[in-house]
Each structure stands twice: as C-alpha cells, then as structure tokens.
Write a protein that binds this DNA or RNA. Sequence first.
DNA 1: TCGTGACGCACC
DNA 2: AAACGGTGCGTCACGA
Length: 573
Amino acid sequence: MVEHEEDLDSFADWVKRNPVLGYDSESTGLDTFSGDKLRLAQFGTHRESWVLPAERGEIYRWYAARTLVYAEELICHNATYDLLVADKHLGVPLESTYHKTTDTRILSHLVDPRAAHEGGTGHGLEDLTSAYIDRAVAEEVKGSVREMAKQLKVTKSAFFAAVDIDHPGFNLYAGMDPVLASLLARQLEKRVPASARRLILYEHDVARVCALMERKGFLVDVPYLEQLHEELLEEQEFYEDQAATLGLDNVNAPQQVAAALMASGVEITGRTPTGKPRVDKRLLEQLANDGHELAAAVMKAKRASKWRVSYVDAFLDLRDSDNRIHCGIHSLQARTGRMSITRPALQTLPSGEHMIRSAFLADAGEVIGSIDYATMELRVLAALSGDRVMQEAFASGADLHQITADAAGVDRKVGKLSNFQRVYGGGARALAEATGLPLGTCESVGKAFDSTYTGVAAYSKRLQQQARRDGYITTVTGRRLPVDRSRAYSALNYMIQSSSRDVLGRALISMDEAGLTPHLRLPVHDEVVASLPKSQAEEIAAEIAAHMRMELRGVDIATDAELGGRSWGSLYI
DNA sequence: TCGTGACGCACC
DNA sequence: AAACGGTGCGTCACGA
C-alpha cells in the first residue's frame, strides 16, 4: 500500500523490474462516465502487488497513469472496464493501453464459454480463482467484501463508495485482484484449445473496438425523453386506476392478475413451468380482443410502466453530462460468443414502432445509418452446410421462404417460420406453437424441409453426432462450443449463431482498420448502427456495408445500408 | 434488508 | 423420434 508520497519511489523501482503487470482498479461504483470516481489503482505480478490511493491526489494518479503507459504488457480481468476507467479518470487513452493488454475474461471464454449455471466455471474473477487457483482463496476473497460491507452496515454495491481508503481488508482485497489476474492468465493461456489460440488476438481486437464504441456513447434527446416520461406515467396511472376499479391492485403481480381474471369468470388453461396459471401477453391480448376490460387495462398499464421504467427513465438516469449513454458492450458474452449490451439493454428496444428508438440521436450535423446483413443466419447455414438448394437460392436471388413453402405446400409465412425455427433448433411442436397449425401438418413441413435441403439435414446430423461424441463442437473459426449431450439438437443453432457472430466481429475489426470506428454506435447481432455526417452519409454507409459483407464458402453474406434522419427512430416509422 | 428464483417480455 | 437457440432486466414473492 502506497501510504505516503515517499513510498512512490519504491513503487516506481518495482515497476521498472516488472514489465508485465496485472492491473485492476476500484471505483465508487460502475458509472464510469457519470459520477463515479476512481478510488484505488492496483498493479501486481503473480506474487506481489502495489495499491495506489488514486483518489487521494494527483501525484498518485500520475504514477498510476505513467505505469499504465510504460508497462510493456498488462493483464486485466474485464479489461474494457478498468481501461475505460483509466481513460476517463487517469487520462490514459484506451489507444495506449488496449493493444498490450491480455484480458483473462476473454481467455476464460475461449477455454469454456459457459456461465456457472450452465455447467461452466463462469467468468467472474472469484469463479475463476475457485476453478483454477484455489477454492479457499476464492471463498475468502468473496466472503471478505460481504463481511466488510456487513460491518459498515452497507450493501455490497454501496461498500466500494463507503469504505475508508485505508481499510486494511479493502486494501488486501484490492491488492489480491491483480495478483489473481496474473495467476489466471498463466492458467488460462495453457487451457485455450489449440484450435482457438488464433482467436485470442482476434477477440482482444473485437473487444477493443467495442470499448471504443462504449467510450464514444450514443447521444439521447433529453427533452423528448422527459416528455415521454410524463405521457407514459399518465397512461400507466390511468389504466392502473381502471384496473383498480375492476378489483385488481397490482397489475405487475401475475398471480394477482390470474386471481382477478378467474374471479371474473375467465378460465386460464396455460400453466407456467412451476404449475401456476400462465398470465402472459398472448392471453391478455386474446381476452382484450374479446372485450374483457380488465385484461385490456392490465395490458396497457403494464406496457406503459415497462416502457417508462425500462427505457425512458433508464436512459435519463444513465446519461452522462453531455447527454450521451455509454452502455456496456460485452463483445464476448453468450456461450456462442454472441455480444450483449447492458445498462441499458440497447439490443432489445421495441422494434415494432419508433417511440423508444427516437430518443437516440445522431451527433449534430449527422444522420443515423443502419447497416445490416440480409437473412444472415440462413446464409451462414447455407455456407456451412454446403446445401446446394439453399446456396443456389441465395446465388440466384430466389425466394428461400417460398421454396420451403412450396416444398411443404404451405403459405410463404409458414415457410419462413419453418426456416427460422430450423435455425433455432425447433421441431414440429415449436412450429405448431408459432403458426397455430396442427402438429401433423408441422411434422410434414419438417419432413419436406429435410428432403428439400438434404445438405442441411446431413450437416445437422453430423454436428449432433460430434456433440454427443465429444460434448462440444468446433466452429470454423476454431471456437470450442460445449453442447449439452441431452440437447444435442442445439448444436446446429450454436454453430450458426456463433459463426454469425464471428462474421460481425471480423467486420468490426475491418471497419476499425479503415478508421470507421468513430461513426459506430452499436452492434446488434446482424446490424451496426452508426452516426454519419450528413454530406457523406451515403458514401460512408456504403463503405461500412462493404466492410461488413463477406463471402463465406462461396455464399454471399450480403449487407443492406439504410439511412434515416437525425433519430434512430426515424428508421422505424 | 438483501439476495435470489420465477415470471414475463423486449430483441436477434 | 423428437428436440425453440441466445440474451438483459423489472417486478413480485420468498427465505436467510
């Protein structure tokens, strides 16, 4: 622990002797861009560490910054977080740290992408310490924060802001993290499957581009959000009152809603996995269409409250002082490698209409562009399976959904659903559920699919065999994807989803190399949202589309660029 | 009071 | 023969 300025010389000497440094930092909270402050900066090797009280003064921050800049290599767990904090609060740009950083979270994901509840190790520092270093140490570290928070009578999340900067337990905890990261790097590096070794660099590149997007942030329209807040609150209260007069106190309590509906004579046949009456949108919609007032009120109240709380208020709450939102872009998150976006979940905004997305704006003088892949997952399926019919359909621009429909003797809509269900690993039951058609019909649609796309059927079978034999499949990029043997049917979906994600990842790197990153705002699975200068919007959108487009085993993974106005919502009108 | 599982729902 | 994949998050309800 650097307690006094005089200790900094010893710290600097130690840094000189250790060019490879684990790095971690502690902040008051997670809002790097709005309000939270850096408290400690910790550097460590596999056997010792130094803790700098960054919050105590400029001199300590200066030493931390200097160390980050001059270290030859850095090892971080969740590098994006700590390096963005350093960028924002230590003035060390991401550009001078990320390229020399190893992120143990990335290594962990390449070793085993599964979360703890899926049978994997999980990817938290404590999870990994427990799995690869020492279970007792992990328990101790985890327990120590809980214990210290309890003593201070604060919650775990409030602890990091409340604890005294000199608290010995806090310093020990903080000092352990870079040591653990260093140890984990050794353990994890040797466990990355040989096929996935070349992904290490690639994933760090993808993560770096996503971190740059996070740092840039997405501008929001505050007056518009404030107006929406009022409107939705009024709407929510109106329909909650209406529900109350019909005898329902809490529209958000599904079992209370069930009780009130049953009291009005409605019979609820659906059951949840735990056996309770299922009250969901579909049921409420059905009842509302039949003129059931309570069901309609519940639906409208819930929608207004969800939209206000999850979107509008969240955006207002999470914006920084420049009215930009810096969501968390987790570039390597799902077990397939798919990305996720949190705080707020910008990949899951309503797409049926423009209201919520209209809150997001291109920068001044710019317009929103959306560049996406056309039926990406089916194209990837065509490429990887080598299915002739599917490949020919894409090559000639034929209507794949119609081909499926014709082969099965059903509507194009059913053909389309059938194609997508197949990508998701769905069977006849799922298709019947989605279409409302009899199970028997859906079974014959499945048979028609298999006899039309024989290459797909064979490919799926091959993947399932691999999954049952090895417990995992390996993607074309070398990524190892564990597949539960009891759910071998999901192998095809994992392969397609993961490969699609890697197409997007490759595109992000390609765009970054071309200097396009400052325009990028969000990756959304098969789409990139961008803010583009009005005068060159078409050219740059075309350039982005060209970088995204790729040929995979002779199949064109085609892209479309769409330009809107100032708001993201303008694309949804 | 806090953490967690169940549930529902937003997306690709 | 049969098999719906991957997320994040708000609320309620419950148990420690």
